[in-house]
Structure formats: structure tokens, C-alpha cells
């Protein structure tokens, strides 16, 4: 089924199959936009009911009635809007009319102030704040660390993203292959990541989803292999076959690419993210994080170190990743429990 049919999708397989479970969060409903991929990926990992809508199309009357029935049947008490749009606002208002105080509604933003050049973001933040003031929303939260310093009305604690839950999967990986699954724009920093990989002697093949145009004028490009845009399951398989993922970008909240890589046991090299004190102190963060996002030398060295670790201590590396995921999971669940209390 596609969103175009009713403007709403209930628990689509790809939005629930890799979700975590938590007895106190399994009955929370998350409403998100079908086309906002990063937010959708983050929501897919959370426990709870998953309702996709679209900023391009209103929910049909049938869809709304189905949603009412669904909420009644499951006795849902908390709804989180992951990302926000006019259509999400409309839905929140309808649900308030129908259910009143029986359901508490929340909004979680996935934006950084660096992205406000897209004025839509400020418009939506304004509407969220109005909703908070009018009592439509109980609380506003953010996955961007320290976002309450950008807008003080936001919940001070950062909501922590989860990695997808994967059945301990057997995979085969080539220890000299890296994956750079980023767009070609300055925010995602494609050229820096590619150059760092090209300069690493531990790397023989670099898979890119977008080609760094003109790179061949600067450095030999024979390590580069272009692969097509991938759906999430293909992305996970591709990550699982690589020694590492390069994802040093300039502006982030909590990149899902990193978490998806970790979920299949692949380390991700990135620039400092500062998500949470405990995460910053974790040995995996120390192994994979560089101070400056455009420090090609540091990125290249880090990548080489990580690749070498696959040869010298793969078991230790995998244990480190597993431990990091466990930490993320407990931090994430606690952050949502605090937010929805």
C-alpha cells in the first residue's frame, strides 16, 4: 500500500520490523512523515505504533476514522509527532477534538538551527510553540543535543535515537572495503570523506552512492565504485559487507546512518557529535570520532586504525560496538520515559 491511497499508513512492515520493545513504550504512537527518510528511519527503531502520514497530502476521511478506531482499540494515551508539518498539526487538532485529555500529544523535532535557512523549519517550530501554549501539546522535545538553548520552551533532555534492532546477523565482510552513503552536498561533506578513504592504505574499494564529480582531477579514482541509491534493507547489507562507513558531516543531530552501520556490526567514522556525556566517553566513540569534520588526515588515520583493528582484534571491535548499542538503547528508552512521564 502506498501513502497516496489514503494519506496514512498503519504499521508498515519496514516501520516495525526493526523496532525495539519496551513494556512502557510499546503503546506509544509515533506519527511521522513517509517522505522524510532520516526521521522515518529513526522512528522505525522505536517501540510503539507507527503511523505514517505525508506533508504532501491530507489524511482521507476513511483514514481518520480508521485512526480513531485504532486509537480506541489500543487505548493509546501518548502520541509523538516525529517531525512536524501542516498535516500533522491538522491531525493533532482533530485528535484533540475527538479524544480530549484522554490522549497526550507531543512533538519531537529533528532539526538543527543550522538548517533554519530553510524557513519552513522556523514556521513549523512556531506552530509547535503555539500548540504548546494552547495545550494542544504536552511537551516539545528534540533529538538535537542542547536544542533547549536554541528555543527554551523545549524539553531540556535530549531524546536519544536508537539503532535498528537486528537479529544477530551473520554477514560476510571485506576488510578493505568502505562505504560512503552520503549525498553530494557540503553538509554531508562527500569530498572530505572520499579523500580520507582514498588516502588510507588499508582501503582498496570505496563504495559511493553519489559520485564526487571531478575528484579524478585531483586524485586517482580507481578505488571508487559507484552503487545505486538503496532502500534501507539494501543499505544495511551493503554496510554489513564493508569494514567501515565514512560519515563525517558538518551538521547533524544523531545520524541514523551511523546507527544503522553499528546495528550490523560496522563501525562508522564521523566528526564529533556530542550527543550525550556517556556516549562521548565510550571507547567506540573515541576510536571512530574525529575533532574536525574537514580534517582529511585525521579521518584517514582513524579509518586506517579501524581497518587494522579488524585484523588485530575483530572480537574486541565487535564487542565494543555491541556495548555501544546497549548503552544507546538504555539511554534512549530512559529519555523517552522521562519525556512522556
Amino acid at each position: 500500500m502506498l501513502i497516496s491511497e489514503q494519506g496514512i499508513l498503519f504499521n508498515t512492515a519496514s516501520d516495525i520490523e526493526r523496532a525495539h520493545q519496551h513494556q512502557d513504550l510499546n503503546n506509544v504512537m509515533h506519527i511521522f512523515d513517509v517522505f522524510w527518510h532520516g526521521i522515518r528511519s529513526a522512528t522505525a527503531c522505536l517501540p510503539g505504533h507507527k503511523i505514517a502520514i505525508s506533508h504532501k497530502q491530507a489524511v482521507s476521511g476513511d483514514g481518520i476514522h480508521h485512526l480513531y478506531a485504532y486509537l480506541h482499540k489500543h487505548q493509546v494515551q501518548h502520541i509523538c509527532y516525529q517531525g512536524f508539518s501542516e498535516n500533522a498539526l491538522k491531525l493533532a487538532e482533530l485528535l484533540q477534538q475527538e479524544f480530549g485529555s484522554k490522549i497526550q500529544q507531543y512533538v519531537i523535532t529533528h532539526v538543527s538551527s543550522a538548517q533554519f535557512e530553510n524557513q519552513f523549519e522556523m514556521l513549523m517550530l512556531n506552530k509547535m510553540l503555539a500548540g504548546l501554549k494552547s495545550g494542544l501539546f504536552k511537551r516539545l522535545g528534540s533529538v538535537k543535543p542542547r536544542f533547549s538553548s536554541t528555543i527554551p520552551e523545549f524539553f531540556p533532555q535530549t531524546l536519544i535515537n536508537l539503532a535498528p534492532k537486528i537479529i544477530p546477523n551473520i554477514s560476510l565482510r571485506e576488510l578493505n572495503r568502505v562505504l560512503i552513503p552520503v549525498e553530494n552536498n557540503w553538509r554531508k561533506n562527500l569530498y572530505t570523506n572520499v579523500l580520507a578513504a582514498v588516502y588510507s592504505d588499508a582501503v582498496q574499494t570505496i563504495n559511493v552512492v553519489n559520485w564526487p564529480n571531478g575528484i579524478e582531477d585531483l586524485v586517482p579514482s580507481d578505488k571508487l565504485e559507484w552503487i545505486a541509491f538503496m532502500r534501507p534493507s539494501q543499505m544495511l547489507s551493503q554496510a554489513a559487507s564493508s569494514a567501515a562507513i565514512m560519515h563525517a558531516s558538518l551538521i547533524e543531530c544523531q545520524p541514523m546512518t551511523q546507527l544503522e552501520a553499528l546495528a550490523v556490526g560496522t563501525p562508522c567514522i564521523n566528526a564529533k557529535l556530542g550527543i550525550h556525556a556517556e556516549i562521548e566517553q565510550h571507547p567506540l566513540t573515541k576510536l571512530c570520532e574525529v575533532e574536525f569534520a574537514d580534517d582529511v588526515g585525521a579521518l584517514s588515520q582513524t579509518l586506517t586504525t579501524v581497518c587494522q583493528q579488524w585484523h588485530t582484534d575483530p572480537v574486541g571491535l565487535q564487542a565494543m560496538i555491541k556495548d555501544h548499542l546497549t548503552l544507546r538503547q538504555s539511554l534512549s528508552m530512559q529519555s523517552y520515559l522521562d519525556f512522556i512521564s
Partner: peptide, 13 residues
């Protein structure tokens, strides 16, 4: 490719 192998392995895991 190994990505292809992993794709099928994860579907059957």
C-alpha cells in the same frame, strides 16, 4: 557481491 549475500542472509536469519 557480498552485499547481495548479506541481503539474502539477513532475510533468512
Amino acid at each position: 557481491s557480498l552485499a547481495q549475500v548479506n541481503f539474502h542472509l539477513s532475510a533468512l536469519a
